[in-house]
Design a protein around this nucleic acid. Sequence first.
DNA 1: CCTTGTGAAATTATTCACAGCC
DNA 2: GGCTGTGAATAATTTCACAAGG
Lengths: 248, 248
Amino acid sequence: MPERFGRRIPEPTVVRLPVYQRVLLELSSHGVATVSSAELAEAAGVNAAKVRKDLSHFGTYGTPGTGYDVDYLLGQIQRELGTDQERPVVIVGLGHLGHALARSRGFAGGGFHIVGLFDSDEATVGEVIGSATVRHVSELAEVCLAEKVAIGIVTVPAMAAQEVTDQLVQGGVGAILNFAPAVISVPPAVHLRHVDFSAELQVLAFYQAHPETAARRASLSGGEGGSKGPYGGELPSSNGAYGWSSGR
Amino acid sequence: MPERFGRRIPEPTVVRLPVYQRVLLELSSHGVATVSSAELAEAAGVNAAKVRKDLSHFGTYGTPGTGYDVDYLLGQIQRELGTDQERPVVIVGLGHLGHALARSRGFAGGGFHIVGLFDSDEATVGEVIGSATVRHVSELAEVCLAEKVAIGIVTVPAMAAQEVTDQLVQGGVGAILNFAPAVISVPPAVHLRHVDFSAELQVLAFYQAHPETAARRASLSGGEGGSKGPYGGELPSSNGAYGWSSGR
DNA sequence: CCTTGTGAAATTATTCACAGCC
DNA sequence: GGCTGTGAATAATTTCACAAGG
């Protein structure tokens, strides 16, 4: 073990953890008991060496010759991700996107609990979405302090993103997920991540405009990986029967 | 010039391009004529050396002693990103998130034009959102072929994501932006990126659970960068006057 | 002086490849 | 025989630092 406990986990590893978790959840629900790094890698769209290296950071032991115990590994990853505790979150900005997130599963899934919704529009204030009522943003910092909010989700227009972020920081919020297409800044102790849909579209446009620059890699999950995967040659044909509706 | 034309642009550079573009758009609209790498870096939340290295890949010349011409540089980046052409996109899955995206600006902004909306729910089919009418997903591949769709946006539940992706691929779509919390695979010629809101939340949860592992970097835009930035000490205080509403 | 563009150095991440264990 | 964990090798990215241009 290299530097277990006193650990510094590389960011790319942290980003892959939720993917592994999802795959393991799926395997577990299907009653699969063990999984090899190669199988996990294929399902997560990365390569096997990466899976093993990633997991080794946590001192998670697999069994040579067998692989990893699915439920044990899942538990380890959930513990690492802190998915085993409920974290209070707030959403600021209840436009279309904020509404969609407020209603989304993905909170339900694990470890997140909406304790507040905020908007600056008096017409939106008072609206009930799911289990929460929209409050005016002037109450934001106060509520964050009172509810010990851990994560703030910013879905306001770009112009207002920094202002709202500052309120969250004043409210003692330690992590912010920004959906606004704006660069915002926070004190060093606050964690900040961006979800930028229009930037992602532009990146795709770039690659279409530059077919010669084929970076064989996908954004979040590591994508194609490189190993054969489902695309060993033939295209998948339609397998009919659409079993989904407008949910999510 | 190192390998200009015959260029292979590093992915991290491509991902920063939309951020630079946004900053330049802002500067340009304020009538700023030139910008130094240091100023651009600060506004984009990265460091100056990175800005210069990034821009050097495109043979974009700044002027020593002065900096970059804002409008010229903006034009170069937009050309590189292909923002100067309209790309036809479709959205598949009109749940809350799909609705939000369909109504979102960010398409309007530059280079993207919604030519189709698809869902499997008969109750949703026929609904008019913005300028498009929701069609049944069984028409997906056919419409993509007919409209020469460049980018497909997948906002269906995880279970259906691979199936829908396969239809897009059959429809000749060359780039896919997946919002479903699922690993999907595509042939090597198709570009794939993920936007995974719940994974981002989990990453933030991880860092909160591990304060010792403070990776000073943000996801998309490079975040704090390292240079002083607006946080040179004091916390920003509330500056009142919320000028935004539920829009976006 | 100020600022670019860029080799070279440093840092970070991925992949290889194999010893050791089941 | 199959599979993990991991040092060592490789590749990719960032940062430094400076020569040359305005």
